[in-house]
Nucleic acid binder design. Structure first.
Lengths: 357, 357
DNA sequence: TTGTAGGCGTTATCAC
DNA sequence: GTGATAACGCCTACAA
């Protein structure tokens, strides 16, 4: 009954009721073992009776520990980022770390502002997407000794970690896969590469690998598009009107690939008969299109988990969790197949496939 | 150079450099106009030079304003929740309010713990999904005078707001739509209704409306499933094996509907020829299935926006934003059509459709 | 218009 | 093992 004053219950209220000092209450509530069991019980009961909830601001101010981590992603509308955040949050939650989330809409200046806000809020770690950020943002984090983790990339800064995959290598895998199917005239519906190191690296890996395999640069068409179904549809149309002879298209996301498939289905272009379409992400929708989408699976959940592992690790242990390099994985479904040219050539040969063995 | 002591730059450091008192710096940084322009400039420059970032904990403690809002959703893996959070966060961000996000996995006890944590962190408002929560959770929020908003429902508590739609009405719309197409034997692949008022209300609206229209209860089969594609596929199979004569199925989410379509396509069941499938959400994938999915569109973005509007409103104005009632909208695509029975009957009539006019 | 001083609720550092 | 006491960094009467 004896409240120190109005407002919510405070530590001192609990102390008064438990007939001990505030210091003792603090000790009990923070798991300090050096408190006599009977007092301990009294404190716990008093806290429960009063429905005491500690004041986080005061705790943070005094202890310089906020138990807050921040994450900034381009958008939650992209399932791949939502999935990463889901697993990141779940893991942090196990350690009673709260996640502050914000979106940058692919704008690194917006990101900088959000980082500034996170620093102000006392975030103890920050999770970002990609390796391209304002130098000022990284400086800010380092000056405040806030560990930061890059996701969706394996490039890390001087002090940070990178728990993503190798985007260049993903482009290489796509190129080799389609090349091995006999495709020699290819297109790519890429994401916008400006200030986006991931999209850029994938384009680079794809085109450079094809070039290395002897495909003429002129036989590779790249179109950059925002990640939207309609853009994918329109992009595919543009591609076909510009270079009608492409036989395979690598898309920077499953969303773009789904749009590409829509165009093909509407225009009577057979997939994979006339053209192979390869996606990126292994989004849930990849199994629902007609034909089902072959794609590269991005380890979204795993990146979230790895980022959380880095954050909750002891500072001394972090160095070992700095660059775990989860892998992208090729998921072959029905939207890719041998190029018509390759098929024709092999059809022209007398020996059927089995005879080759 | 003259730092008060080690550690990050503090208000006093800025004051020292700007040759004024800490109070003046505080005034400048908080937009108090009663400061002479020249001092104002000195302060701003000093703050910039020292890359000063205020300590949010101290601000919160002193001012009892955290500029933090919390949201708890079942999961980010469901696009409908991700979309809501996206727009909520965007709107809050405009007012420099940070969003703490956590997921409950549809467990209201987990939710209670997260709410407790949010209260401790000083959240100034909390956004929840649905109207079913632990009584203790609501009590906690009210005792701390934290406004709370229910989303995805139009049921609000004694003090809270509800910015969602009427789930019962959504069930009614689905029932009427399918009934008007001539369907008399129907199924529903619902979500798990336990502790989920939204799923429960939709089932109720659907079945009660059909009953009111004269459909025998025995002619309505309801199966509850987690929201996963594979569950939808299996559920549809079960439905067909149990009641092979159903001609229309209402699904509690597009994910379930997509699974249902998968089963039909594989089993050679024509959609909508043999069976109509109606989804719920208007998820991105609804336009990608074969056939494209007819569905009820949930105003996810709008709910996020409305929740944010409620939060940022002056307390006195909130009452007007308490129950805005955005509507679900029927989106008719290719997965629904007249029931075979109805078609047969009308086919049997001599007059072709146009002749009726 | 500017400065001084006190305290927000908690935890750390001492004594006892 | 427990209790005073002093900060943590900032805001805000109030005084000047």
């Amino acid at each position: 009954m004896a409240k120190t004053n109005s407002g919510p219950t405070k530590l001192l209220d609990v102390a008064l009721r438990a007939q001990c000092s505030a210091a003792t209450v603090s000790r009990v509530l923070n798991g300090n073992r050096t408190v006599a069991p009977d007092i301990r019980d009294r404190v716990l009961r008093a806290a429960a009776d009063l429905a005491y909830v500690p004041n986080g601001s005061a705790k943070s101010l005094r202890s310089t520990k906020s138990r807050l981590a921040g994450a900034i992603i381009p958008t939650l509308d992209h399932a791949i980022y939502a999935a990463m955040i889901e697993s990141l949050q779940a893991r942090l939650s196990e350690r009673d770390i709260s996640l502050i989330l914000s979106t940058s809409l692919y704008d690194i200046d917006v990101e900088l502002e959000q980082i500034r806000l996170f620093v102000e809020r006392g975030a103890e770690a920050v999770v970002l997407v990609g390796a391209i950020h304002r130098a000022e943002a990284i400086k800010l984090l380092e000056r405040h000794n806030i560990p930061y983790v890059f996701t969706h990339t394996n490039q890390h800064g001087p002090k940070g970690a990178a728990v993503g995959f190798d985007n260049y290598q993903a482009g290489v895998i796509a190129a080799k896969f389609l090349f091995d199917l006999g495709h020699r005239r290819l297109g790519m519906l890429a994401g916008i590469t400006d200030n986006n190191d991931r999209a850029t690296a994938r384009v680079k890996g794809f085109t450079e690998t094809l070039a290395g395999l002897g495909v003429a640069r002129a036989a590779i068409s790249v179109i950059e598009l925002p990640y939207r179904i309609e853009e994918g549809r329109a992009g595919m149309q543009t591609l076909f009107e510009t270079v009608p002879h492409v036989t395979a298209v690598f898309c920077g996301s499953d969303i773009l690939a789904a749009g590409a498939l829509k165009y093909c289905n509407a225009a009577g272009i057979a997939v994979p008969g006339d053209v192979s379409v390869l996606g990126f992400d292994n989004h849930e929708l990849a199994g629902l299109t007609t034909p089902e989408l072959s794609t590269l699976e991005v380890p979204a959940k795993e990146m979230g988990r790895l980022a959380a592992d880095f954050i909750v690790a002891e500072p001394g242990q972090r160095i070992h969790l700095r660059q775990p390099q989860p892998e992208v994985r090729l998921v072959i479904r029905g939207s890719t197949g041998p190029s018509r040219a390759a098929t024709t050539a092999s059809d022209a040969e007398p020996a059927p496939p089995l005879a080759k063995r």
